[in-house]
């Protein structure tokens, strides 16, 4: 993680692979810093408290975990519009009376399996069925919400008292932070290692950058694409677990419009929508920017309408800043 501008000029291949990723974070860190300053100035007594920081991280956990999966899919040249719906479906499936009768461990397994399973279906449709990712995952979005509503009979499914172990993920605190924050951190760290330190990660960049070249280099592009969507589904399953812990419910209404929030976080985090470039760190910073904006608006007693405008402006400014950092608009 070095910001050596001179090296970047001298060594184009290195720049293409790593340099821009790091440079992009500069704008985002600036935005984050600016938000923190705004918080410190407007609410000096509330913003920088341990409770508030813990609150921000907890709120960021659900969308953050989804964003890690989304980062992989987008770097791999795809898009996953079904993430919010998959999270909802996984939360519903894991909280039916039948699943709940098997206890919390099966509920966790069920959430993760449903998420991953639906991700595999996405991957099969896209990699082997040759559907455009936008269409395939849009279809999954609609279908998964429908299935979630059907299973839950459009009701909110409460977690029963004997399965309180799920809720304890949100209530048990270690060093002042609830367990769900550690889960989020673990997923983010695992995502970073997977992307930057493994063959899987290098293949993801290759497949997203130039699928034909990747194929010629001996990568099974279709199988890799399948794995990327399965990974995204897996993350949705984990996110379902977090939302279940947070709200003590499973519901088909969970995760409404999460797909847009996750894509926005990935984009302002510096990942190219066309694939081939991007970072997990940037996406996490993107999630934190959005979560802190919401937090600042509530702390200052402002209404959500202006918050939406602020989010829109931030997306545009962040992308413009990245272009300047890159100097080679793509």
């Amino acid at each position: 993680m070095t910001f050596t501008l001179t090296k970047k000029k001298a060594d184009p291949p290195e720049r293409a692979r790593r340099g821009p990723g790091e440079i992009r974070h500069l704008g985002l860190l600036g935005a984050l810093g600016l938000l923190v300053v705004v918080g410190l100035v407007t609410q000096p007594g509330e913003f920088a408290t341990g409770g508030n920081i813990s609150g921000i991280l907890t709120l960021a956990a659900t969308i953050g975990v989804i964003t890690v999966g989304m980062t992989f899919v987008i770097i791999g040249g795809g898009i996953d519009l079904s993430v919010g719906a998959l999270m909802a479906l996984a939360s519903v499936w894991a909280t039916t009376l039948a699943t709940q009768s098997y206890g919390p461990v099966v509920m966790v397994l069920c959430a993760v399996l449903v998420g991953t399973g639906a991700g595999v279906v996405n991957g099969l449709l896209i990699a082997y069925g040759r559907l455009v990712p936008f269409i395939a995952t849009l279809a999954m979005l609609v279908a998964a919400r429908g299935l979630g509503q059907r299973i839950s009979e459009r009701k909110t499914q409460l977690i029963r008292p004997e399965n309180n172990a799920i809720e304890s993920l949100a209530t048990t605190r270690v060093l002042g932070l609830p367990l769900v924050v550690y889960l989020f951190a673990a997923v983010a760290a695992a995502g970073w290692v997977l992307l930057n330190r493994t063959t899987f990660g290098r293949r993801t960049f290759a497949v997203g950058g130039n699928p034909e070249a990747a194929r010629l280099a001996g990568i099974d592009v279709r199988r890799h694409t399948l794995a990327l969507y399965a990974l995204s589904g897996f993350c949705c399953g984990i996110a379902a677990l977090i939302i279940m812990a947070r709200t003590t419910t499973g519901s088909a209404t969970h995760g409404d419009l999460y797909e847009l929030d996750a894509i926005a976080a990935v984009i302002i985090g510096g990942t190219l929508l066309t694939g081939g470039r991007g970072t997990v760190v940037g996406s996490i910073l993107g999630v934190l920017v959005f979560t802190i904006i919401t937090n600042l608006f509530v702390l200052n007693g402002l209404q959500t309408t202006d918050q939406l405008i602020a989010k829109g402006v931030i997306i545009v400014v962040a992308v413009l800043l990245q272009r300047r950092g890159l100097r080679t608009p793509t």
Binding site: E46, G55, T156, I243, G255, D256, V298, L299, Q303
Partner: peptide
């Protein structure tokens, strides 16, 4: 003292409440 809008869903209620509780000790 303060009001915020949610969306009639469990999740939105949860998020809005979590932030409001931070804002008012």
């Amino acid at each position: 003292t303060a009001k915020q809008d949610a969306k009639f869903t469990v999740e939105s209620g949860n998020q809005v409440a979590a932030n409001l509780l931070q804002a008012h000790k």
